[in-house]
Design a protein around this nucleic acid. Structure first.
Lengths: 352, 352
DNA sequence: GTTAGCACTCATTTGTCTAGAGTGCTAATA
DNA sequence: TATTAGCACTCTAGACAAATGAGTGCTAAC
């Protein structure tokens, strides 16, 4: 871009520089056209006065180094996952989001005020819609969150409805059965005690500490205490039930034309536990994470790339969102969308 | 089935009887093999000493009457939706469920005690797993249900968490914002008043009547009353947010090999609103409903059949469950599964 | 170091042919 | 009159061959 290079013989750019440029253009071109790119067309695109023959030499080297591969002898070159990785890490710029798209994201996230579940499902739909790939959203790890409030509601003689409200206003609720009849007053006193002391504890600790602390402070009320402990134990014994929301499976069909592969991908997406594990892998990382092709541990996903980002509240990572698309996706377009959506989601949870 | 008909020339069964038999066998055979069935093989299967030529005549008649069609001139016959309809209504027996399968259903439904959402999602997975088709579950129409309890929890100065527990122990909850500061005592008195008077009203009526009744009984406390009315209005203003759970999309790929059709089907499944409408169509009917091919108003589903059944509580239909599969599915196998699962689900909701 | 030229490879497309399954029609049969 | 055998006809699916063309690797010249 430093001017027009019409002269056939100009001082050649440094070797490495040219390798870099050609690799980037190949990846870019392949992402755009989905066609293996050959030396002739590449020479034209580059417009640096390098002949196809020279480019062929360079391409041969790049192939040898594992950045490119050939579907078959007489085809052009296609990036390997290593090629994409180089592109994503080094070549790629991010196309900034239009204010239009930003507005759509903010609005979508803001409008679903009907609780966390609907917030997450609509975020998932949003991702699928904007990227035109399959959207994936993992629900928060509740053990990582802090409690704001615990309440017990007696709904029947021996059934109690437990509401746990976290600092991020996530509401967990369940109905527990108790063997003894407990008065609403008693329930209130237990919840008051819990709320007072442990509002800011992460749920995991509460499970242990609450019970411990209860027994210390009320040692004399043995009978009631036993009941309170039993109650609390049941209340906090939440099977950590993570959810995975998936939307836009139909986009998979568009991207792959091998019917077997499509089926395997859909099956993998139905196997939610596997995916949740995968999403959780990146919980410690910041920003957008890109997992390309063979970098992915799940065999059936190795023709795909997974773009994810975490959402959090008060500095604590809750879960992650992302999309699954073909390795040859337009990373520069997708990454900013995931990034912005994750941030918008975090904000929405904080302000909920 | 009235004995073995070895003799080549036996008194022919009545014409209509033979039409009936042949149509049934064609449908059955096609369901089993997925191959268009021709006159020769049909003659063998039937084993009634009827020659292929005769069968050809009958098949021609059946084709003319719209029960069968030919993919092309030199292919065998394939049932039309009218053919399947005849088969389902008249020919088909139901293969009774094995106690094995019954146990699986009961167990699956019983085990998910973690609230309605998880009950419905696991029912959906169950349907997909058992039938090997795509499972569909529509969540209850909440306006049709009756309330058991209403509670208000003050979680912040101006934010109130509302819990609505229905007679079927479905828990609806939301956070509402109020403009004035309300004490927990006041909230308790409002909920007590609501609970006392309207526990058994369907939610739709509550919306109107509660407000009405409140204003009659407490006319003097004008200030508080206004607040109570505002509060209640917000609490009951639940956008009727139906959910649709879908699982086992991958089975669609197995059944159809036209990649375009697969994509259109997946897209339709993602368009949940359309499907909910479709499921609600059968809300008034009892038992299992079968919608075959072109009977379905949605064009993209006209190569599929939809088998649904309602689930209910206390005689009130809440929602419906079902599966989507190819028209050539084994109806006699699938229908009992849907039937039994719907009943098990209804029971699980009642006992929840 | 770069390039032109050329022989070579290989997937894809197109056309042709054949085998096979199944039909519809007609004339013979019981 | 209903049934059947026989036959010509239709159409698909699969196999095969030839043509096409994009792209490569190598070599020799610049």
């Amino acid at each position: 871009m430093t001017g027009n290079n019409q002269s056939l013989k100009k001082p050649a750019a440094s070797l490495e520089d040219r390798f870099h440029k050609i690799l980037c253009v190949i990846v870019q071109s392949y992402i755009e056209t989905t066609e293996p790119v050959g030396s002739r067309s590449l020479s034209k695109i580059l417009d640096l006065g390098i002949s196809p023959a020279t480019i062929r030499n360079i391409m041969a080297d790049l192939t040898e180094q594992g950045f490119l591969e050939q579907p078959h002898t007489s085809a052009g070159r296609v990036p390997t996952y290593k090629g994409y990785r180089y592109f994503v890490d080094i070549c790629m710029g991010q196309t900034p989001l239009s204010t239009e798209v930003k507005r759509v994201i903010e609005q979508a996230v803001r409008e679903s005020s009907q609780g966390l579940v609907s917030l997450l499902t609509s975020t998932c739909q949003l991702l699928a819609g904007l990227t035109q790939f399959t959207g994936i959203v993992a629900s928060p790890r509740i053990s990582q969150t802090r409690l704001r409030k615990v309440e017990f509601l007696k709904i029947e003689e021996r059934r109690i409805y437990v509401v746990l409200i976290t600092q991020s206003n996530m509401v967990l609720h369940k109905i527990i059965e108790v063997s003894e009849t407990l008065s609403q007053d008693f329930l209130n006193s237990v919840s008051a005690s819990l709320n007072r002391q442990f509002e800011t504890e992460p749920l995991d600790d509460v499970r242990e500490q609450v019970l411990q602390s209860l027994s210390e402070s009320h040692e004399k009320y043995n009978q009631l205490l036993a009941q309170a402990v039993r109650l609390s134990r049941k209340a906090f014994d939440l099977t950590e039930e993570r959810q995975l929301y998936v939307d836009g499976q139909s986009f998979i069909v568009k991207e792959f034309n091998d019917i077997e592969k499509i089926q395997r991908l859909l099956e993998t997406l139905e196997e939610k536990i596997t995916l949740i594990g995968l999403m959780d892998n990146g919980m410690d990382e910041e920003g957008v994470q890109v997992t390309i092709g063979e970098e992915n541990p799940i065999t059936d996903l190795q023709t795909c790339s997974l773009i994810t980002a975490n959402y959090s509240n008060g500095g604590i990572v809750l879960g992650s969102i992302g999309i699954l698309g073909p390795t040859r996706m337009d990373y520069s377009r997708v990454i900013p969308i995931i990034d912005y959506t994750a941030k918008a989601l975090s904000e929405a949870i904080a302000n909920q």
